[in-house]
Each structure stands twice: as structure tokens, then as C-alpha cells.
Amino acid sequence: MALLEVRGLTGGYGETDILNGVDLDADAGEVVVIVGANGAGKSTLMKAIAGLVRIRAGQVRLAGEEIANAPAESMVLRGLAYVPQERNVFPSLTVEENLAMGVYARPEKFREGKERALALFPDLAARLATPAGRLSGGQRQMVAIARALMLEPRLIMLDEPTAGLSPKFCSAIFARVQEIARAGIGVVMVEQNARPALAIADRGVVLAMGRNRAIAPGPALLADPNIGRLFLGG
């Protein structure tokens, strides 16, 4: 049994379904990368798993427990952390307060979580009192990932963690992602930056029109000429 098992997930906003039966598996300690064209439903898939988008049909199991349509605020305690794209920090809260929001449900874990966060992202130590809105894009991304890791999740979902970052920051983020997976946490990541992301993926998933198109180890997907031409820009 995989840590995360998504079966036939169907749902979307209002009347329209954006996801039309998506399957997804992620194991502990594994990096799963989801790629696909704009509008393929990548972000919607993450939001649906996180409880922010209504699921009309299908199952979502985390460590065997059914979590489809559970309230978004309950996910953190079930061990599911989620870092949305772009708007992923509280801009008017300081870095330290952002980290505190990561343990909102278990305030007593703050000290321990903060130590781990600063060990992973030492650059943040000097910025603890700065409002997150004043940080650079890369620093924000670090704060967002650090916040999501505060409660030692079983699974973390990252929506385009390298969007808009310089190549130097991108590789730093990918290095952290591998570090997180080595610690035994399942990582599900949506990436526009498909090639370097798939290179580190234990499992790559190609999404198109709200459906799975291909599932294979990341390097194998990269090597597949059809996939390359269709979804990775040649």
C-alpha cells in the first residue's frame, strides 16, 4: 500500500470538472513529479487532495485513511502538508510567525520545528523578524517549504516550487527536495521546469486534460521521445 493513493479522482470548480479520473501513487521517501501543459489540472489536483477543491468522485487515501473532501484545515494533522504556487507565505507575518503558522495545530512543537527548519534553510535565521512579503522569491519559497515541514508531515505537496526563480535557486530547491525525501517524507511536486525535476523523480506523472497520460520513473519519461515532444517542449 502506497502512502498516498489517489484513484479515479474527479472534480473541479462549480459545475465543471477539471479532473476526470486521475490516479496517483506516492510512497514514503519518494519524489513524484507531475508535469503537463497549462490547464492540464496539475494545480487543481493538488488543491483537491488538500481539500480546497470539491471532489465529486474517486478516492484519496493517505496511509490507508480516506481523506477525500475532508476539511482543508484537518489535513495538517493527518500528515499532509501543501505549499501552493506563488501565494504560499503570509506576507504581513514575519518569517518566524510564518513558521509558527506551520505548527498552528500543535503550538508546543514550535521550538523543535523551528530548529529543523533552520537546519534545512540556514539562510532564514537572519530573517526571522522580517515580514515574509519583503523577502525575495527564493527566500519566500524557503519559508513556505519550511512552514509546511514544521509538523513533520508524512507527505508534502509542492506546487511549482521553482516558478520564477533563478537557476541557482532552482537547483538549491531541488537539492532540498531530495533531502526531504531522504528523511522519509513523500514528496509530490508539480513542475513547469520539467526536465531538471524529472531528472530527480522516482516517479513521473504526465497529466493531460485532467487524465493520466503516462506514469513511469522520471528518467524513463525524459528518455521517451513521444512524451518529450508532446509535453516537455521537444
Partner: peptide, 23 residues
Amino acid sequence: RAGRAMRAMSDDPDLARISGVAT
């Protein structure tokens, strides 16, 4: 903690929810 949650919701209600804030 409650005051911080209020400011967090003001910043971004969805992000507050996924952080475990009972809105």
C-alpha cells in the same frame, strides 16, 4: 495565537486553512 490566525486569514484564507486554522 488567535490573533496571528486572524492576520493569517486576512493575508490568505486558503493558506490559513491548509495550515490548520479552523476558519
